[in-house]
Design a protein around this nucleic acid. Sequence first.
DNA 1: GTCTATAAGCTGATAGAC
DNA 2: GTCTATCAGCTTATAGAC
Lengths: 193, 193
Amino acid sequence: MPERSTRAMIVEKADTLFYEGGFEATSFADIAAVVGISRGNFYHHFKTKDDILDAVIARRIEQTRGMLALWEAEGDGPRARILSFIRMLIANRAKIMAFGCPVGTLCSELAKLDHGAQGRAAEILGLFRDWLAGQFRALGAGDRAEALALHVLSWSQGVAVMASAFRDETFLHSEVAGIEAWLSTVPDPAPLT
Amino acid sequence: MPERSTRAMIVEKADTLFYEGGFEATSFADIAAVVGISRGNFYHHFKTKDDILDAVIARRIEQTRGMLALWEAEGDGPRARILSFIRMLIANRAKIMAFGCPVGTLCSELAKLDHGAQGRAAEILGLFRDWLAGQFRALGAGDRAEALALHVLSWSQGVAVMASAFRDETFLHSEVAGIEAWLSTVPDPAPLT
DNA sequence: GTCTATAAGCTGATAGAC
DNA sequence: GTCTATCAGCTTATAGAC
């Protein structure tokens, strides 16, 4: 299936370019140049730029599902699984300091563009929220599981924004340590939220 | 000074458009249409689009300084002053849910564009950080004042990203309540950070 | 200080040869 | 399935009349 290969390559490169340069600022010419095809050929695979965005979001949803399933399978208990999520901030720190969180920044950009795909992009955050809520439930958080999940997700989004604004790796590490310390108090965290 | 008036109007309208639609997606034509001048006239006041961005950032820095000075003058003690900052999230909730935080989203966009003004935009966050750190010092936080300031700033950035991604006002209110509850434990906050 | 007219280049998108 | 050639429209930016 040579067709699927080229198409998959376009989506993969577009994903990276949308992340590192933004959706609107990335042109067909940019993607075509990286993939190594002509602009004309492009339209054999995708009719509009929005179609590429849809494919990129679908790819990210699929990859997120795969990652969550992996953490679910490999993590030794819910606390360790939540740590897998938090430590993404460390594992991807170079890219996060340069470009922020791929999902958070895409949601922000699409919101400003008043783009119809904004809701679908937010679904990726929803996958993390639901998975994290499941882990907190397993920790005995009960009704507060979803609020705790949103809190961790929100905290990590804030860290990503700040780390990229200030390009400050020390801050990133100390906030991750803060999240981990907070997590050790769950399911009975102090005053929060 | 009729010149300054037109120039000031351009900066004011550009500020709003950059916030609500993004810097790159906003064209000279968009700004000119809102201000009510021709595109040609535009270049009498600003030579390049980057010049407008510089002016917008300078305006935001000035307005932030003014706001911080007001909170400083009117706030009844450091705890009340920090609450003034936190409650911006509530006061501006409609715009935050639609477009995120004006400063955080601008920093994120400029980072992706690899724009030279990114550092200047981050200075606005720096103003908040330094002011908050001063308040935490006044609360007796000592050496941890700056870390606590960054934590509040980061927390509020995360809330802004999540509130706009999910368009969820309930979440926004409950996180603000969480920040306030956490603040009441300072200068001796639990496990944190 | 504001306007119209215009330039050169990039944008997303199309048509049609191979 | 990939290419070249082309389109209309928009972009930032300039020149020059009033």
